[in-house]
Design a protein around this nucleic acid. Sequence first.
DNA 1: TTCGCGATTGAACGCGCGTTTAATATTGAA
DNA 2: TTCAATATTAAACGCGCGTTCAATCGCGAA
Lengths: 236, 236
Amino acid sequence: MRSTTSDSTSRRSPNSSPETAERILSAAVAEFAEHGFSKTTIRGIAAAAEVSPGLVIHHFGSKEGLRTACDEYVFEAITASKAKNAEYATMAVQMMFDDPAMATAVHYLVKSLLDPSEHGQRYFDHYVDLVESYITDGFAGYIFRQSEDTRGQAATIAVMALAPAMLDQRLQTNLGTADTTDTMTRLAPHLLDLYLHGVLETVPTDADISTSPTAEHSAKDRSEASARSDLREEES
Amino acid sequence: MRSTTSDSTSRRSPNSSPETAERILSAAVAEFAEHGFSKTTIRGIAAAAEVSPGLVIHHFGSKEGLRTACDEYVFEAITASKAKNAEYATMAVQMMFDDPAMATAVHYLVKSLLDPSEHGQRYFDHYVDLVESYITDGFAGYIFRQSEDTRGQAATIAVMALAPAMLDQRLQTNLGTADTTDTMTRLAPHLLDLYLHGVLETVPTDADISTSPTAEHSAKDRSEASARSDLREEES
DNA sequence: TTCGCGATTGAACGCGCGTTTAATATTGAA
DNA sequence: TTCAATATTAAACGCGCGTTCAATCGCGAA
């Protein structure tokens, strides 16, 4: 039943269509990346690839088989990209979105990460390992703060690095950015600031220190009041 | 023929069953939180609430109507919690998971956030607004670093704060933590460190400082090599 | 040329979904 | 008690899904 070059002598039988299978695979990655796995249909993929639904099954056996093939396809694309651009990993995720195909691959991985399945866990585990090696060995000229719980630290940083891609659509709508690249460009300086200095500063005990106070907003004690009010009404 | 009615004392209109509707609602929130919206079935909710599928439709009109009802239900639970515990918002998300019902509510919101729909966007927008007010007014005794792009900064911080809850399952598997509370407790010190100091330190110009080299891993320049290799094999 | 095999298709199958419908059970109001 | 309205159910409807199947097409081998 399984097809696609079962002959070891690389001899192609009467008919072959490696490019058709690849077109299906490419369409599948795009569809999965956009709609997620459960909402994506074989019929939709077939339509995008301009083939019949039956042919998709013929080449990949099942929807799950197609997904597995997509995993390898995307992993190879990501690793190939990393070889060319080793700086992406920890915080410069936005660099990956320059290449449209790479952006699709990242979106696919995000969907895989958020969908309960082994595929996504495998990628997440690998990513945490990668960050952990960065913590111990340094990365791109930077060194990391050290912790007694390096594993937990690596997991924390990995989660932070993946977060913007996961909420890409939400950010795009909220900030009014045009696309993913635009969004990541907008976030980049704040991410860098966060990674370098954090976000909080201990309240000055008596004297002012550092950080030019650009805006003297009314810093009252309404931190709790604002938390309780108006969660429900909105209009923006 | 369901039980529950058991004893007498029914003083309502001709017939009514607010408690049955509430049981359905509660079951729906739990099911949605666990499986997401598209994978959750009316039949599954009905079974969890021990009623017939038709009754679910009778009370809420449709699956979408049920979802809308769940939104309000969860929003109220969250806001009620915030009234009692105003410290959760920015980084102390883990505090919310003490209450099991609250943990379900948070998981529901996460699923809503990750599912493309207006409901999740509404919550995200509100949350960014909340963080923005914290940036300008301070929060829980802390003051925030100031930026020219407060909106972008707020969005960045909001995304960071939501990230651990979104990858809860992935973290649990990777770290071997028992449950969400355990996971959040594990991450908490690293999150605090991140928020207070960041993760990176500029590489020392000439002298070594701090950071004991704990790991004897082959700490070569393999940062790039490890990125390219062994993405696909795993066994842990 | 003829033959065989994989590529490809259109139609159909079975299933589970959200929803509808008709009937029954229950209960406050008259 | 009688009545009307609601709660509740079992069954079924229609639809879209993943998948199967039989038939056809196209091309290399003989």
